[in-house]
């Protein structure tokens, strides 16, 4: 079981890096904002016209803003460690509470997209591999290559224009009805499925040329049984391992797709926090997205071990 511990330790380290990177960047962001921080906070507390030098000095003394920068940075990071993320500068709500509200829709969208792409991509990849060099394979791989070259926002616009505005069969944006899930999920899943179909195709081709497949054929198994019993699991190992690389695409795609379709999730909030320079919200949402990324990566680690015993014993 040492392997599992090792993998977990790596992911914990990654989570630590995420928290440090986001925390330190946001601290410097707060420092870099124009104006005196003490005056700004005093203005927010007592109203713009009630601020005097005395009030600002009181705030400065109370919050320790006159301490050296490294002490304030340590304080800032300690607050993150205590999951004290502060309040949004825009809505005045606790960042943590807002994140809890948004988390469900973001995780729902990510998992729906992953599931849809898993249903479409790998089966298509296996299908292409079985017809390698023929017309369906050529068309399929060309389509996948084209899809990979389209940024997710362009795919989203195209789907939106065709299905929401031209055919008017689904809502263009929003979250209020079940059909609202169709466009954002499809947008994300298309990009993921394009890549996973190419990877599955390569993996299946490699397996089909291996000696155990030649043996299975020699012993007289039908083509369907050869693929089902001997090819699928072997081909699945690299495909699932590749999912780890795709997660970057998924997390980045969620941010873009949520903004495009006005999806009330963390990615949407993150983009708004950047535009409004709402630092506590920015920090909270970036942390949540980063940690979600780590968590999904850990899940892929475990899936790899479950599928491929060679990883377990390595």
């Amino acid at each position: 079981m040492g392997g599992v511990g090792r993998a977990l330790a790596d992911r914990l380290l990654q989570a630590l890096f995420v928290a440090l990177l986001v925390g330190v960047l946001c601290f410097f962001l707060a420092e870099a904002l124009p104006g005196d921080q003490a005056f700004r906070i005093a203005a927010a507390r007592y109203g713009e016209d009630m601020v005097s030098g005395i009030a600002a000095d009181a705030v400065r003394a109370e919050l320790g803003l006159d301490r050296p920068a490294w002490l304030r940075l340590a304080d800032w990071l300690l607050n993150i460690a205590r999951i004290d993320l502060g309040v949004s500068l825009v809505s005045g709500e606790s960042v943590f509470e807002e994140l809890v509200h948004q988390l469900g829709s973001t995780i729902g969208l990510s998992l729906a997209a992953l599931a849809l792409s898993a249903l479409v991509g790998p089966p298509l990849g296996v299908f292409f591999a079985l017809r390698a060099g023929k017309l369906p394979d050529a068309i399929g791989t060309a389509a996948a290559a084209a899809l990979r070259a389209l940024p997710s926002f362009a795919v989203g616009i195209a789907l939106m224009l065709v299905f929401a505005s031209w055919l008017a069969v689904v809502p263009a944006a929003g979250y209020d009805q079940p059909q609202s899930w169709l466009l954002p999920t499809t947008t994300l899943a298309l990009g993921l499925a394009a890549t996973s179909s190419i990877v599955s195709r390569q993996a299946t081709l490699a397996v089909l040329q291996s000696s155990q497949i030649a043996f299975a054929r020699t012993k007289g198994l039908g083509e369907f049984d050869v693929v089902r019993r001997h090819a699928v699991r072997n081909a699945a190992a690299p495909v699932v391992a590749y999912l780890g690389v795709q997660l970057v695409y998924l997390v980045e795609g969620v941010v873009v797709v949520e903004s495009l379709f006005a999806w009330p999730g963390i990615g949407h909030a993150l983009v708004h926090a950047v535009i409004a320079r709402d630092i506590p919200m920015l920090q909270g949402t970036a942390l949540a997205m980063g940690l979600l990324f780590v968590l999904l990566n850990a899940a892929v680690d475990f899936a790899c071990r479950a599928i491929d015993p060679r990883v377990r014993h390595a």
Binding site: F17, L21, L25, E252, V271, G290
Partner: peptide, 21 residues
């Protein structure tokens, strides 16, 4: 290298973008 890869690139760019919109 590990620290950079811990975070998807877009998140890093978004945080930096807040410095100078």
């Amino acid at each position: 290298c590990d620290a950079t890869m811990a975070l998807p690139g877009l998140l890093l760019v978004l945080i930096l973008a807040a410095f100078a919109p």
